[in-house]
Design a protein around this nucleic acid. Structure first.
Lengths: 369, 369
DNA sequence: ATAAATTTGTGCGTATGTATC
DNA sequence: GGATACATACGCACAAATTTA
């Protein structure tokens, strides 16, 4: 009684599909004529035509007037359902820690049967727009975005809002555009800057210079924490203590500034650096002036990148979740995609931890070697 | 006479499509009933049904029994044409030079309006299979593949062959599986091993140890070149001169081997390393024993990775095209996709160049510092 | 709540046109 | 030209779902 009768043409469709699948009918084989099928299955030719018509639309058959009906070349690979592709848009692909974040996200997504569509902006907001537009042309299930120059406004806001319109879930990593209220995974950069500076202060350093990139909010927040530590310990924030630089200048400007500082009479005894990449560069500056790290100068890096342990003097630095952040980002996004709840997940904020290595030392401690 | 009469149902289809396109019928609007259309256009209901049926299959309409026919929500964002996505399958995403290759390829592909679908095998042939299968479910325009453990056979050969069956162009980078004859971009690893070793020989070194990874062909070829250099200069290849290791052992095994070697009475005066990552590690081993590089030990790296200049002693190493290889790989693949010619492009083989830095020195030269 | 009207779904019949062999 | 096969077109009857009276 509860049975739903299957229409005749539908049963014929299934029968024919099984013929094809079992190999009884191979590609380019000729199927029986409409009249023959009608006779064999005791149905009208119109009904056969309905079944064949649908199979043709589905690409399993092709029909040639006057010739017959034939099995299509099975070019059909079993297709991925739309929405099983996740886009990831970062500033860089190859720079220090980004590959690790990407690797983490890719691994997790693949485990869950999703694919990763990768794109980078090269820290250029124009390219961010192009990439977003291109991504929107794909049937994406979601997006993981690292903002480009997050401290310099968001000219592509309209595009991001259209993600909401299309109901494409997205999250941000490292930072978020303040205008958007999407979930975000980030490091507590302010705390990191504070911890790095306070570590040096507790080692007795009093003249501490800071070097921060300021075109993204990570840099601004790390600087904020740095300043808070100085204030807390009532150290003056003198002119020239903090060097701000833009991404384009990272190879020269801070290096030159550090050289100038280290040559001055009242040279700083410690550096807090925006990241390990810069710390390695400033390590080189100290070497060039014949200064020993950590005997003459302490340096704190940031991000615990592979560079931190490649140097002779291993860098004291602040941890960054890297792969783990990528994994969690994937988890969170997949949760939003599958998830029922309309409430977006809460932000995940990682506390950076100080990793003590050889590049920092108390002032005035005995020289070695 | 030469006119082909347009069928009634086709004219109706076009009429209805124009209604939708012009906005006379908006999404979720109800279309006139089959009988009404039939009356209005003076045709039978069956003919109307044929037109509506096709439009439904094409996704422009949906029909609800007992209710009516409705215009589909045009959720269709302008879709990317299939085949505008390029897959890239590498062993690692985050390890030293891979990010640079990926970055180069991604940049070039995006310039041409293609997207990059990224996946990594983690040097695991099982994951290589899974990733390939997943990639095949996407409408890929082509594939860039870095073989996984190319020196250890190819259990996924069938999958690679099915790429040919589906006419999906693909190329390999860094190495190729010998069983497959697809275009390949690679470094002349054999020449690199030779150049590195000969450089040391010309500096007067006689006891030169080599450390090579042997689960991929790059390592095997670099070793081959290393041995050829020794032969050419009639140096003996003594027991223990060459250390082979597998990827899993890279963090400990060569390090321990180097320590043992350096402690022996007849310690080698120079190392040729599979890559910079290993060179940095062995630099550390030398430090631990109080040996100075390059005064007591010369080290040659490979790949000119960022690590090579992060160390205090900048590494003498062999160049690798990195980004450029990614860009050229993208170019070559796009050429194959667009290209008419059935003949596949020729391999591109880069000659590695010796980059002289501070980690190598002639034996017996004056000590410094 | 029931019945009637409407609308799409299924199935069959016929006739004619047109392409292929 | 004739036979065969698919394409177009119209007609009817009834079933199933939905809306309306």
């Amino acid at each position: 009684m509860a049975d739903k009768p299957i229409p005749k043409y539908m049963r014929l469709k299934q029968e024919l599909m099984s013929w094809i699948e079992s190999g009884q009918l191979k590609p380019d084989d000729k199927a029986p004529s409409e009249n023959e099928i009608a006779g064999r299955f005791d149905m009208s030719r119109q009904t056969v035509r309905q079944a064949l018509g649908e199979l043709e639309k589905e690409g399993l058959l092709y029909r040639v007037q006057g010739k017959g009906t034939f099995i299509a070349r099975r070019n059909m690979r079993p297709m991925q359902p739309p929405g099983s592709m996740i886009g990831m848009l970062t500033t860089h692909i190859s720079d220090y820690i980004f590959p690790h974040i990407i690797q983490g996200a890719e691994a997790r997504l693949r485990e869950e049967g999703y694919s990763l569509l990768l794109s980078s902006t090269g820290n250029d907001k124009e390219k961010e727009r192009e990439n977003l537009e291109q991504m929107l042309r794909q049937p994406l299930g979601g997006l993981i975005i690292e903002p480009t120059r997050s401290a310099q406004g968001n000219p592509n806001l309209q595009l991001f809002l259209s993600l909401d319109v299309h109901h494409i879930p997205y999250i941000m990593i490292n930072e978020r555009y303040p205008e958007l209220h999407c979930p975000c995974l980030k490091l507590d950069d302010e705390a990191g800057g504070f911890i790095g500076a306070e570590h040096l202060i507790k080692l007795g350093h009093r003249r501490i210079a800071g070097f921060f990139k300021t075109d993204d909010l990570q840099g601004a927040n790390r600087l904020k924490g740095f300043i808070r530590a100085l204030h807390k310990h009532r150290l003056p924030l003198e002119e020239g203590t903090v060097t701000n630089y833009a991404s384009e200048e990272k190879h020269n400007m801070p290096y030159e500034a550090a050289l100038a500082m280290l040559k001055s009479a009242e040279r700083p005894t410690a550096f807090v650096c925006y990241n390990d990449e810069l710390a390695v560069l400033l390590l080189e500056a100290a070497r060039r002036l014949g200064l020993s790290v950590p005997d003459d100068l302490s340096i704190v890096g940031f991000d615990d990148s592979p560079l931190a342990t490649a140097t002779e003097v291993k860098l004291t630095t602040l941890s960054h979740p890297k792969e783990m952040m990528g994994v969690r980002a994937a988890d969170m996004l997949l949760g939003m995609i599958k998830g029922r709840g309309p409430q977006p997940p809460a932000d995940i904020v990682y506390k950076p931890e100080l990793i003590l290595r050889g590049s920092t030392r108390a002032v005035g401690e005995g020289q070695h070697r």
